[in-house]
């Protein structure tokens, strides 16, 4: 069972997860970040704008450390 994705759905997914990422509760941020890394990790890797947004939201706390661990925090030169 799968859902065919397109650009619009991807943007919608990122927007929904982004709302959770901007939550002040670190637990919710952690879970939304886990979802982002699980579901759309490849797309974040390709899309620099989205990657920078995720890094910006997760500058503090566990999220940024986890991003650095996975080697996605540093934007390409």
């Amino acid at each position: 069972m799968s859902i065919e994705d397109n650009g619009g759905l991807r943007v919608l997914a990122i927007n929904i997860l982004g709302r959770f990422l901007s939550n002040c509760d670190n637990n919710i941020r952690f879970i939304s970040f886990s979802f982002i890394t699980l579901m759309v990790a490849t797309w974040i890797g390709q899309n620099q704008k989205i990657r920078l947004m995720v890094v910006e939201i997760n500058l503090r706390g566990d999220g940024a450390e986890r991003l650095r661990e996975r080697g996605r925090a540093k934007a390409p030169e």
Binding site: N26, N27, R29, F30, G61, D62
Partner: peptide, 11 residues
């Protein structure tokens, strides 16, 4: 766990 800061998430 004990060494973790209180602001960090609970996971």
């Amino acid at each position: 766990i004990i060494s973790r800061a209180p602001k960090l998430c609970n996971f």
